[in-house]
Amino acid sequence: MKKSLMFFVVAILLVLSACGSKSNTSTENEAAKTDSEKKTETAQEVNLYTSRHYDVDNELYNKFEEETGIKVNIIKGEADELIERIKREGAATKADLFLTADVGRLYRAKEDGLLQAASSDVLSKQVPAKFRDNEDMWVGLTKRARVLVYNKEKVKPEELSTYEALTDDAWKGRVLVRSSESVYNQSLLASFIEINGEEKAKEWAQGIVNNLAQNPEGGDRDQAKAIAAGIGDVAIMNTYYFGQMLNSQEPEEVKVAENLGVFFPNQETTGAHVNISGAGVVKGSKNADNALKLLEFLTGEEAQGEFASANYEFPVNENVEPSELLKSWGEFKEQDIPLSILGENNAKAMMIFNEVGWK
């Protein structure tokens, strides 16, 4: 009897021990599951450092969130400031994607070792090779042309031809353009260095300085307004700024733009200068896969159509047509140079600007 009782007690203890072990294992598994869930939850985001500031961008980020469940955290700032911030943050940076409105800044970020290669069949299909870095460090999202905008009452389209012709004496005191601090002007001059050589590029910059209607000031829209104010007759500006003015909520801006014409220069020679907004995945990104998904979304047909219709930018996706306004300006020939050249020649462009006194 005692022996049977002893066996019974041992059996009970073994059952309890097994239950305890099972309970502990279950608790450990639950803890592990919770950690995994937290990790997954954290991964469902992408941290975007961007220098763009357009409403359409925010609308597209919201659509991306709705379609994918991936939260887009937006940090805005000037392109150079964001580059320096990523440098300071180093391996601890939270940045996943760097987006900016000029290929020269993308080139700088790449040269500074801040970006990593990111490619996919989707991106290759949606974005032509000429708008992608040859090492897949960045990809173009939209493009724009730097054109001549003129006073339709004082200038006839047949009087316009090339960027170079603006240096002729006929245009003395009539040319308007923003300062040499504008990355758009830096990239424009960088393209001339590639196409015509440094000496010819310097001659062009000097000729523009000689023909300025006023010292460079303000942005592209301000150049258009200066034409309306009678200060000058022709300005160099980006196409999307002119499109925004024509569709502005401010009646005065619309009135200014309606009295101006758009001319694509160098159509019989080297083509009009084209630049891009683009983005690259940050080196060491904690959410690189999500960053790539966002790039694929922004270069897809729906997003490209939104960029074109809402912000008057040319699509990089060849399956998407420009907006009706952009099409009304006609087709145009583009410069045929690698976009990375705009970054490579940036320092030379700045040196030339300083030498000729382009403030």
Rank of each mutant, 00 (worst) to 15 (best):
S4L: 13
F7T: 09
V10F: 11
I12Q: 12
L13H: 06
L14E: 03
K22M: 12
S23A: 12
S26C: 13
N29G: 00
A32Y: 14
K33A: 11
S36C: 07
E37S: 10
K38M: 15
K38W: 15
E41Y: 10
T42M: 14
T42P: 00
L48A: 07
Y49D: 00
N58D: 10
K63R: 11
T68L: 06
K71E: 13
I74Y: 04
D80A: 06
L82Q: 08
I86W: 10
K87H: 10
R88A: 15
E89V: 08
G90V: 03
T93F: 06
D96G: 05
L97P: 06
L99V: 15
T100D: 12
A101M: 07
G104E: 03
R105F: 13
R108D: 10
A118E: 06
D121Q: 11
K125H: 13
K130H: 11
D133S: 13
D133G: 09
D136I: 08
D136Y: 11
L141A: 06
T142E: 08
R144E: 13
V147N: 01
Y150F: 09
N151H: 07
K152F: 05
E153Y: 07
K154L: 14
P157S: 02
L166R: 02
L166I: 02
G173S: 01
G173D: 03
L176A: 10
S180Y: 11
E181W: 12
V183I: 15
Y184D: 14
S191Q: 04
N196T: 08
V209E: 03
N210R: 11
Q214H: 15
P216A: 00
A229P: 14
G230W: 05
G230A: 02
A235Q: 02
Q244R: 09
S248H: 00
Q249F: 06
P251V: 08
E252L: 14
V254F: 07
F264E: 02
P265V: 03
Q267F: 05
G271F: 04
H273L: 05
N275H: 09
I276H: 06
I276W: 08
G278Y: 02
A279K: 04
K286Y: 12
D289L: 07
D289Q: 09
N290S: 05
A291E: 01
A291S: 05
L295E: 00
E302L: 15
A310M: 14
V320I: 12
P322M: 03
S323V: 09
K327A: 04
I337T: 03
I337M: 03
L339K: 00
I341K: 08
N346E: 15
K348P: 03
A349M: 05
M351F: 10
F353T: 01
V356T: 03
K359V: 14
